[in-house]
Design a protein around this nucleic acid. Structure first.
Ligand SMILES: [Mn+2]
Ligand SMILES: [Mn+2]
Ligand SMILES: [Zn+2]
Ligand SMILES: [Zn+2]
Lengths: 170, 170
DNA sequence: TGGATTACGAAAACTGTTTTCAATATCGGC
DNA sequence: GCCGATATTGAAAACAGTTTTCGTAATCCA
C-alpha cells in the first residue's frame, strides 16, 4: 500500500529520537532543560502533522507553566537538528512532523474532512529529478501536495459544495 | 524547451483580460472603479510572480492615493474571477500571477538567486493522477515546487554556503 | 558551589493580511 | 443630468501567527 494515514507509535524509536536530540543539544553547546525535555517527549509521542497550538495544549498537561515562546524555540531546534520537518498546507499555520520510517514523502490533503495522507513514489521522484537535470537545476528539496477529496469517511467526494473544511481553508 | 522564465507581454492579451475582468465585475453586480482599473491594468502588465508590495509600488506611480487595502481587495477579486492565481513559495508573502498561455504549471525556485522557473510535464501530471486514483483520491489541484540551485547566472550551484537568497528565505 | 552562560515566560513587537468605519464614488431609474 | 440606494475607498485599527525583548531563573563546568 502506497498510502498510510499515520505511522504507528514505536516507544523505542521515540527514545532514540530523544537521545538524538540530547546529542544535538550537547554538540551545539546548549543546555538541557526540563522544558525542552517535556516538549520533545510530548512531540515525539504525538502523531500526525502537529500545529504549535496542538503541541502547546498537550505540553501544558505535563507542565502548565510552559508558554508559546519555548515551544516555538524548541520546535526550531528540532528542525535544526534534522529530526523534524516543518510543513505548510496553506491553512496559515506551520505544522511539524518527525519523519520516522519514510525519509521523504509527499501529501494528499482532503479539503472536505481535512485528513492528510502520505505517499511516496519513486517514479515521481525520479521524474522530478530528470526534469530538473534537463534544465540544469539542482534540487535541494521539493514539496508536492495534492489537494482534493478522499473517498474515505462520510463521502467527502459527494459534498463538493465548498462547505466544511474546503471553505475553512480559504 | 520545457522551462521558460517569463512569458512575453502581449498587449492584445492584456486587453482581453481587462475585458474579462470587467465582465466578471458586472456579472457579480459590482461596480467599475477608477482604482480597480488602475490596479488590474498595472498588474496585467507586470511579469513574474508579483507580491502585493511590488504591485502597490507600481500602482502608486499611476495613482499615489491607492492604498494596500484596495490592492488586496482587488487581488482577491482577480483570484475569484479565475484570471489570477495566488502562489506561496515559502518566503511568507503571497505572490500572484495571471496565467496566460500555460493553464497549469509548476515551479523551480533557485534558493541562491531567487529566480523562479516554470515548467509543465504531462507525464508528471499523469503520474500524480494515477497515484491519486490508486488511493481513491480525487485531485482538485496540486502544487509542486522544486527548491534548489539553477545553473544560470553567477554560478548559483557553487555557493551552497547558505548565504544570499537561501539564507534570506529562512 | 560560584558564576558565566543559556534558557524561560510574559508581554511587546513584528509581518502580512483583513476588517472597520466614515467619507466618497458608482449607476440604474427618474 | 440628478437622486439615492448601494458599493467602494483609504487610513487606521484589528488580527493571527510568529519572533523578540528583557528581567528572572536554571544549567553546568571549573
Ligand atoms: Mn507527512
Ligand atoms: Mn508561475
Ligand atoms: Zn516527493
Ligand atoms: Zn503540475
Amino acid at each position: 500500500m502506497a498510502v498510510k494515514k499515520f505511522r504507528e507509535l514505536d516507544e523505542a524509536l521515540v527514545r532514540q529520537k530523544e537521545a538524538a536530540f540530547a546529542d544535538f543539544i550537547q554538540k551545539q553547546g546548549l543546555k538541557t532543560t526540563r522544558q525542552r525535555n517535556t516538549i520533545i517527549s510530548t512531540f515525539f509521542r504525538m502523531r500526525g502533522h502537529i500545529s504549535v497550538e496542538e503541541l502547546l495544549n498537550q505540553v501544558k498537561q505535563a507542565n502548565p507553566r510552559i508558554g508559546y515562546a519555548t515551544v516555538y524555540r524548541t520546535l526550531h531546534l528540532l528542525v535544526d537538528s534534522g529530526l523534524v520537518e516543518e510543513r505548510r498546507f496553506g491553512d496559515g499555520l506551520a505544522r511539524y512532523e518527525g519523519h520516522s520510517d519514510v525519509e521523504h514523502h509527499d501529501h494528499m490533503i482532503c479539503l472536505e474532512c481535512g485528513e492528510i495522507f502520505e505517499f511516496f513514489n519513486p517514479r515521481l521522484e525520479a521524474l522530478q529529478e530528470s526534469l530538473a537535470e534537463e534544465n540544469d537545476f539542482q534540487i535541494f528539496r521539493h514539496r508536492l501536495e495534492l489537494y482534493g477529496a478522499c473517498k474515505d469517511k462520510d463521502a467527502c467526494q459527494r459534498r463538493k459544495s465548498r462547505t466544511g473544511a474546503a471553505a475553512a481553508e480559504e
